[in-house]
Amino acid sequence: MKVLVTVKRVIDYNVKVRIKPDNSDVDLSNTKMAINPFCEIAVEEAIRLKEKAAVSEVVVVSVGDQTCQEQIRTALALGADRGILIETENPPASLAVAKLIKAVVEEEKPDLVILGKQSIDTDNNQTGQMLAALLDWPQGTFASELNIENNKATVTREVDGGLLTESLNLPAVITSDLRLNIPRYVSLPNIMKAKRKPIDSKTPESLGVEITSTNKMIKVESPAVRESGVKVESVDELVKKLKEEAKVLA
């Protein structure tokens, strides 16, 4: 059984984003970039499946420019077997990414695709579901537990009302939530080993996918800033302020 797992290069989650002075976009120049945290969890899950011998090969895919090789290398150092970079100038929108990954799925024929549930840059939370729709596969989104047995995936999903467990026929698409696992640290020997693992290059043209989007970002602005408030010295003062100044307590 083969697993395909996707990784996206995004701003490091500890870094606060800057907005370009002309409000055309965010400014990512000289910004620390990293593997999207949800994608890292997806990679870890695929590797754990391999360690449990539920899976024989883990293939990692990224979409973007040459710099995304770094994030593929990170996934290879975590334990993925080989990488595929679909080269594009700018990161395409969710539907185009789903179409590109679908084309790779048709070549690689995995039994399972694991993606992060959302990327922390655009916060869209779309690609996994779109991929599942295009492939006409079942989906287990926001997964916090995944078990593979008898050609079925049992997936526990984090939903607003609690934890929802579903059974999916394979092949299926899974998107990872935060508590699916805690990714391991990458060891130096594994970083060295990852350098020798192969990364294939593909292009949207070679996959027969046209990069378009029906969404156009016309402006990016800073959110309204909250004015910083005051420090109070005691519970009495706090309660008084909440009642008399803010009027949020009766």
């Binding site: 922390i120 840059d121 916060d123 969404n215 016309i218 402006k219 990016v220 602005e221």
Partner: peptide, 16 residues
């Protein structure tokens, strides 16, 4: 819509 955990607000035009 908010992007980057709400640290930026994007105005998006859809041609769909």
């Amino acid at each position: 819509r908010p992007i980057y955990a709400g640290n930026a607000i994007a105005t998006v035009e859809s041609s769909a």
